[in-house]
Every structure is written in structure tokens, then in C-alpha cells.
């Protein structure tokens, strides 16, 4: 019964990634290699992040929200953006269109994140006898994270790869990218600073991820138009 629950949570956490890959044209153009490279880049980035966090951050005894520490954490979080930049621009891919490239990178990125951050707790916790909503919420969080990763990759590809984009949209793109990149800090502020409960935080994440996805989609298609 509890292994059953583990499978449910695993499906919720990792299923959308697989569905996204198979449902979109990504599967038809065989972009798995790109995704895996992005995942490897994610692994390296998170290692660098770990080292930075360990070097610059004090271990806080309490769960209080410390603005200075959180600012530092947010700055270190921008290493993610650097990693994503590397994955989008420096990696030599087979010639796939920009359109598919950012999706593949975002997908690999989100999948690696889910595996790293959620698989172990899931394996340890969800198989136990005790039932909590935590693992289901965590799965939903993974979904939100997938949407956010792809949005960020889309915005990144707009920033770094697309040359002729409408001048008026550039600041909006940067602002959106900034918001998406600081999402982890925002949620941690909500959780620790405002002491929101997990369901509320996850709901917020899902909502903002959908909003950001919609905005980045609109931006992306707006940039697509003049080039056509």
C-alpha cells in the first residue's frame, strides 16, 4: 500500500516531464541528448551552488527568515541562470531549432532538479507507513518547477539567442526573467518570512508558474512574429 503511494507520488513528480517530452515535437526531433546535456550542466551548477552556499552561508540554527542570508542565497541562486546560459549558448547541439532547444534544455533542467531534490525524500518518506500530504504537494511543486524552468529557458533563449527582437519588449523580457529566476527566493520568503503553510505556498507556485508561462509564451510568440 505504501509502495503504491510512493508510485503515485513518483508519477506526479516525474510523469509530467515524460509526458511533455513525448507529447511535444521534442520526441520527434530526438532532442533527448540536449536534455541530458542540460541535466549534466544542472548537476555541475548545483555542485558549484552547494560549494558557494557552504562557503558563504552560516548554518542557521533556527528556521527564521534572515534577510541578509536570503539575499546571499538569492545571489547564489543566480548561478542557475549562468548555468542555463551555458547550456543554451555554449553547448554544441545538433542543429535543432531554437524553439526546440530551449524546451529540451528547460525539460532536462527541471528533470535533473526533480531527481536531485525530490527523489531521495520521496524514496525515504513516501514508502513509510505515515501518510502526509507533503509528498503529493512536493509532486505538484515539481510540476510548477517544470513550467518555471521551461519559461526561464524560453526567456533565456529570447535574451541570448534571438538577435532581432522588438526593442519595446526587451525590458519586459528582462524583468520576467528576473522574476522567474528569483522564484526560489520568493517562495522561501513566503515559507519562512510570512510562515505560509506548504499547501498555500505550492498553490502560489502553481499559480505564478502558470502566469509566468503564459507571459513568456506571449513574449516568445511576439518575438517570433517579425522574424517570420
Amino acid at each position: 500500500m505504501t509502495v503504491f503511494h510512493f508510485f503515485n507520488c513518483a508519477i506526479l513528480t516525474f510523469g509530467p516531464h515524460a509526458v511533455y517530452y513525448s507529447a511535444t515535437p521534442l520526441s520527434e526531433y530526438d532532442t533527448l541528448g540536449t536534455s541530458i546535456k542540460a541535466a549534466v550542466v544542472y548537476l555541475i551548477t548545483s555542485l558549484v551552488k552547494l560549494v558557494c552556499l557552504a562557503t558563504f552561508l552560516n548554518v542557521s540554527e533556527s528556521d527564521r527568515f534572515d534577510p541578509y542570508q536570503e539575499l546571499l542565497k538569492a545571489l547564489i541562486g543566480f548561478i542557475d541562470v549562468a548555468g542555463l546560459y551555458f547550456a543554451l549558448t555554449q553547448l554544441t547541439h545538433r542543429n535543432i531549432s531554437q524553439n526546440h532547444k530551449f524546451q529540451a534544455v528547460g525539460l532536462g533542467w527541471a528533470f535533473a532538479d526533480s531527481v536531485l531534490h525530490r527523489l531521495a525524500p520521496l524514496w525515504v518518506g513516501a514508502r513509510g507507513l505515515e501518510f502526509t500530504w507533503d509528498y503529493i504537494l512536493q509532486g505538484l511543486e515539481a510540476n510548477a518547477n517544470l513550467v518555471l524552468s521551461i519559461s526561464l529557458a524560453a526567456l533565456g533563449s529570447l535574451m541570448w539567442l534571438r538577435k532581432n527582437k522588438p526593442k519595446t519588449l526587451i525590458p519586459i523580457i528582462y524583468v520576467c526573467a528576473g522574476i522567474v529566476a528569483t522564484m526560489p527566493s520568493i517562495t522561501s520568503y513566503l515559507r519562512l518570512g510570512l510562515e505560509w503553510h506548504l499547501p498555500k505556498v505550492v498553490g502560489f507556485e502553481l499559480f505564478t508558474s502558470l502566469v509566468m508561462a503564459f507571459i513568456s509564451w506571449q513574449l516568445y510568440s511576439a518575438c517570433q512574429r517579425p522574424s517570420n
Partner: peptide, 24 residues
């Protein structure tokens, strides 16, 4: 331990399945 029932997990599986199908 606070435990969930098998029916809950079955319903959850159904919900997840339909969610993934809709997403697909």
C-alpha cells in the same frame, strides 16, 4: 502512524492518470 487508505491511493492514481492524459 497516520495512514491513508488504499481507496485514497486508487483515487489518487485515477486522478493522476487523467491529469497526465489531459496534459498530454
Amino acid at each position: 502512524y497516520q495512514v491513508a487508505s488504499v481507496t485514497f491511493d486508487l483515487l489518487l492514481l485515477l486522478g493522476l492518470g487523467s491529469y497526465l492524459i489531459v496534459l498530454f
